[in-house]
Design a protein around this nucleic acid. Structure first.
Lengths: 145, 145
DNA sequence: GGAATATACATGCAGATGCATTTAAATGTC
DNA sequence: GACATTTAAATGCATCTGCATGTATATTCC
């Protein structure tokens, strides 16, 4: 039989799922309305922008963004095709690729950010106090394995 | 320029996204390892199980599960094909369908639940106190429009 | 140094999703 | 009652994702 004590955790998961779904949907809609690429592109572009000097190895991105290997590979295909990143053979390990953001990649990233940020603030910033947000981050950090 | 005051909300969104991704991944893996259908099927089956007497209209499920109309329509295709639900023409409104769970649908739902529940408790229950989980639910409830 | 194994990334194929449109029935207007 | 509008659900098509496998290079162990 169901243990009533556990129901709060089930509720927590449902809240997490619905909350994520809702916020993500609103962010994607905002980007789309502004004729900008999807959020997944932003995540990649941001990482590459942060390491624009050195480049980033694909397998590093995989773990930072928690994407499956084939998923990242194809995401990179699309972003590269749009001209926002470059894949260069890694001279230290010729199996691998070093990823760099291009100037137009940096440009689009900078156009995406205000839309993305506004969506976040509209949803989270207006509804949660800073204290709540801090506690929220702390709680979620405990879920990391 | 970026307002440092807002960064906590950006962090909250990233936590929410990563947290969701992580937990969902583990639940789906658990179900898959047990040769059971994906979580989205469970959500549908649970709703239909709760209304097994009266059935549920498709458009109601849409809003309860936050699925797009075409997404639900095709999810129902798959679940119906597996024999777990039935779509009956709604006599009150012949445009619509009344959805019912079948016996084998109820069976599979009951086999999915312990796996699903165990995954939730393994991840959330072991990491969060009940107080934390309660606060977490409360915070997320504020995000609903 | 050579065979076996592991790692980095790409890709063929099937299945899922998003978007726009279609079909059918209900409702509203005159 | 005939016509336009709205609503419920399905579907064609392009894109995206997941899984399994392929290709190339690196590492390990004898």
């Amino acid at each position: 039989m169901t243990d009533l004590n556990d129901e709060i955790y089930e509720a927590a998961w449902v809240s997490l799922a619905r909350g994520h779904q809702g916020v993500l949907g609103r962010i994607e809609t905002a980007l789309q309305s502004a004729d900008l690429p999807p959020l997944s592109w932003y995540d990649v572009l941001l990482e590459l922008s942060r390491s624009r000097e050195t480049g980033v190895r694909a397998f590093e991105l995989e773990s930072r963004l928690l994407l499956p290997q084939y998923g990242l590979s194809r995401l990179l295909d699309r972003i590269e095709k749009a001209g926002y990143i470059e894949r260069r053979v890694c001279e230290d390990d010729r199996r691998g690729k070093l990823l760099f953001i291009t100037q137009s990649g940096e440009d689009i990233r900078q156009r995406m950010w205000p839309i993305y940020q506004k969506a976040i603030l509209d949803i989270l910033g207006k509804k949660l106090s800073k204290k709540e947000a801090e506690q929220f981050v702390l709680t979620l950090s405990k879920l990391r394995v």
